[in-house]
Structure formats: C-alpha cells, structure tokens
C-alpha cells in the first residue's frame, strides 16, 4: 500500500518533546503515520525510539507537543476517553510481557474477557483462530515459562491482535530471536497488515526486518528524527548517519566515545 500525503494520518505527532532526568529523550519530533502502512522507527540503542513508541500508545505523557490519534489529542482528554482509544491498540513487547500466572489461552483471552461481553464459547473460538494465525494451535494449556522465546513472542502477537485493533505497536519484535524465527515474525507482521489492514508501527534495529517489511522508515538519533522515507530512499540516502547505521560501521557521525569523559580526567 502506497501512502500519500493527501490522506488523513492515523497517528500524528506535533512538536513532541520529553525529558527524563535532565536528558532530552525526545527532541521536538513531528511525524505522520497513515492508515494501513508499516512504519518503522530505527535507531541505535538509547536513541529514544522505544520512548517515542510509548508516547504514541498513550503510556508516556510528553512534556511538550501533541499526539493525535485519528484527530483526537490523546493527552488532552479524560483518562476514560484515553482508555477507550487504547482498546484499539495492540502492542507486542520486547520481552513479550505475557502474564506468567496465566496459560497461553488465558493470556490471549484477557483483552477479550475484559473489554467484550462475548460468551466463553465464542472467546474460545476467537483464541483458536488467533493462535492458528501465529501457528501455535495446540499450545493453549501451556504456561509462558514452558515455551520458547520465539513462541512467547508469537503468543504476545496473538494477544496484541485479539481485539482486531486498528494500530499495532511492535517494540523490537525480532530482538533476541534466531534469524529464522525473526523471519517468521517479520512475515507475520507483513501478513497482518495486508490481511487485516492494520497500521503497524515497528521499533527495531534489525536491518533485515527494516528493509523486509517497511513501507516507510524513520531514522531516530538522540531523540530527533534524522530522516523519513521509503526503504529505497533510505538506502540511497547520502546522509552520513543513515549510511553508518544501515551498514553498521564503527566510524562515523554516530560516535559512542565522544561524550565519554576523558580517561585522564577520571584519574
């Protein structure tokens, strides 16, 4: 799906900033994400991309600026209205964040149980459908501690899409997984966007998935957006930050050593 600027954005950030303990984590970010696209936010560890995701999904309130979800300013409405908007979100966490005390089945059922009045039999059917979508039929009665990390991620994904959300947020969906399972997760993300017309916002620094699934990419460095563009534009970009990042070079403008206090001063 090719996004065009004439459409209304689903998520819109206007001059958003956030400071944690005197450190500016998000620096005046403005961004539009359109319906049905897979939008990737990439950047180094600690660049503020996860915080940016949490600002979009209503978890972290920004110090300045506005976040619009379908034209609603989510940080300037009542908590109850925000909770209602959040029901249209799904989120896949970096470490899956399944509830340890519940089985796979109960985990996926949780949002349905809490937010719908569906009968238990119907919820059971929905769970089976969602689990077969992520290829985990037959694991209903297992506890999260009894299955592998990749399977936990897939259960997390099933839970994220249990309520058929409009927007799904992914926080490092492939980190810590082997390349094959990572590829499976990437394919699932791609399929879900195509089949269920969900808007996907993915935070990652896994280059394979970045160029595999993205419709558009934003590069974040030190809390600010360096560039936004399609995968081809990003690949061909002559921005030194982007070139260093996608090629994984130790030398370049992204410098981990510059900010260190000199060793001599330490003594």
């Amino acid at each position: 799906m090719k996004p065009t600027d004439s459409r209304n954005p689903v998520i819109s950030l206007k001059n958003v900033s956030k400071t944690f303990q005197n450190k500016k984590v998000i620096d005046n970010v403005s961004l539009d994400i359109y319906a049905g696209e897979t939008f990737i936010i990439m950047g180094c560890s600690g660049s503020g991309k996860s915080t940016l995701l949490r600002v979009m999904n209503g978890t972290i309130r920004p110090d300045e600026g506005h976040v619009f979800i379908k034209d609603k300013d989510i940080y300037h409405i009542s908590d109850e209205a925000l909770a209602n908007i959040k029901k249209n979100f799904g989120m896949l966490f970096q470490y899956s964040a399944l509830l340890d005390s519940m089985t796979v089945e109960e985990n996926v059922a949780l949002p349905l149980d809490e937010h719908t009045k569906l009968a238990d039999e119907i919820i059971k059917i929905i769970i089976k459908m969602k689990l077969s979508l992520v290829g985990l039929r037959g694991y209903e009665k297992y506890y999260p501690s009894q299955i592998s990390g990749g399977m936990r991620k897939r259960v997390g994904l099933a839970r994220a899409i249990a309520l058929d959300p409009d927007i799904v947020f992914y926080d490092e969906p492939t980190s810590g997984l082997d390349p094959v399972v990572g590829g499976v997760i990437d394919k699932l993300i791609k399929d879900l966007s195509a089949k269920l017309l969900m808007t996907s916002v993915v935070v990652t620094h896994d280059m394979q998935s970045v160029f595999g699934i993205a419709d558009r990419i934003a590069m974040v460095h030190k809390g600010a957006i360096v560039a936004v563009g399609t995968p081809d534009e990003i690949r061909r970009s002559d921005n030194p930050y982007i070139q260093q990042f996608i090629n994984g070079k130790p030398e370049g403008p992204i410098d981990f050593f510059k900010e260190d206090i000199g060793i001599i001063q330490d003594f």
């Binding site: 209503g58 978890t59 209602n84 979100f89 989120m91 970096q94 470490y95 949002p111």
Partner: peptide
C-alpha cells in the same frame, strides 16, 4: 515479589496498554 516481577518484566505496562487498570 510477584507484582515486582510483573512490573520489571513489563507485564504491568502490558496491562496498562490493554487499558486494563
């Protein structure tokens, strides 16, 4: 200990994101 573990492994945040108080 249980709630603390849930907190540090993002489970509490996950509940919040699912708009479960």
């Amino acid at each position: 200990a249980e709630l603390g573990t849930m907190k540090v492994t993002e489970q509490v945040e996950a509940l919040d994101t699912m708009s479960i108080n």
